[in-house]
């Protein structure tokens, strides 16, 4: 599904990501961890074509993403993402946030809108209905008319995921979904992510620096430190990997 092939990026002299190799299979739940400043978000921005790699190749759903504009990643590679600092359309309603993301379902043009033909009402009703059903799955339908910025924090995170799902992705990138959440919210999120994977049959790549969260969630984990991949494996393997322990806890503690 996702193939990151020896990718590097430099900002001036700073090598933010160096020679990273990463792979996510269909319907797999993979974690990407690392201490602060390890280059996780940079790698995410490379995968979503916000940055262009200095060298290396990234393939999503069989397409080399170098050929695309950033906005085509969602349409042609069927990849959607969320952001570390929530990025909702704050002044739009909950339903509208999902509707904007449902743009691939729009089957009518300017004249249909300007003249308000029957087709306009039929299509809009259908798209609205589908968006509402999607909100229902995540229990956000009661708040469909509220402005996104007025939602509680947890619901904002959830809505961002729902909006990403509205683009019908085959792979979902979650950038620190548990950031700023307390224990019970984190536990709920854990179940939510598992549920999404089952229900929508998609692959998920999660960035987190909360070790516990990622260990309980992912089948396979990649560890980044100082822009380099230092380990790869199952949660158990990662937990016992001396390189990972050193990266997280520092040099002296391990003797």
């Amino acid at each position: 599904m996702l193939e990151v092939d020896h990718v590097s990026i430099e900002f001036g002299g700073l090598k933010a990501v160096q020679d990273v190799y990463l792979k996510v299979n269909d319907n797999e739940l993979v974690g990407l961890i690392g201490p602060n400043g390890a280059g996780k978000t940079t790698l995410f921005n490379l995968i979503t074509r916000i940055y262009r790699p200095t060298s290396g190749r990234i393939k999503i759903d069989g397409h080399n993403i170098r050929e695309f504009h950033a906005f085509d990643i969602a349409n042609k590679c069927h990849a959607a993402r969320t952001f570390q600092n929530i990025r909702l359309f704050r002044d739009l309603s909950v339903l509208d946030n999902v509707l904007v993301a449902s743009h691939l379902k729009i089957d009518y043009g300017f004249w249909t809108v300007a003249l308000h033909t029957q087709k306009f009402f039929d299509s809009e009703k259908r798209i609205r209905g589908e968006a509402f059903e999607l909100l229902k799955i995540f229990n956000l339908h009661e708040k469909y008319d509220e402005l996104a910025k007025n939602l509680p924090y947890g619901d904002q995170r959830k809505l961002e995921i729902v909006r990403a799902l509205a683009t019908k992705p085959k792979i979902l990138f979650l950038d620190e979904p548990a950031a700023g959440m307390n224990e019970s919210e984190t536990a709920e999120l854990l179940n939510l992510i598992r549920f999404i994977r089952e229900k929508f049959k998609l692959a998920i790549l999660v960035i987190e620096h909360d070790m516990k969260f990622i260990m309980g969630l992912c089948e396979r984990i990649y560890v980044l430190d100082h822009g380099q991949l230092i380990a790869e494996g199952t949660p158990k393997e990662i937990q016992n990997n001396p390189k990972v322990i050193r990266a997280y806890l520092g040099e002296e503690t391990i003797t």
């Binding site: 916000i50 969602a74 909702l88 743009h103 683009t167």
Partner: peptide, 15 residues
Amino acid sequence: MAVRDDETATTSIGL
């Protein structure tokens, strides 16, 4: 209005 609120997010959903 999506563009007004957040351009990065608008791009991320394929617009």
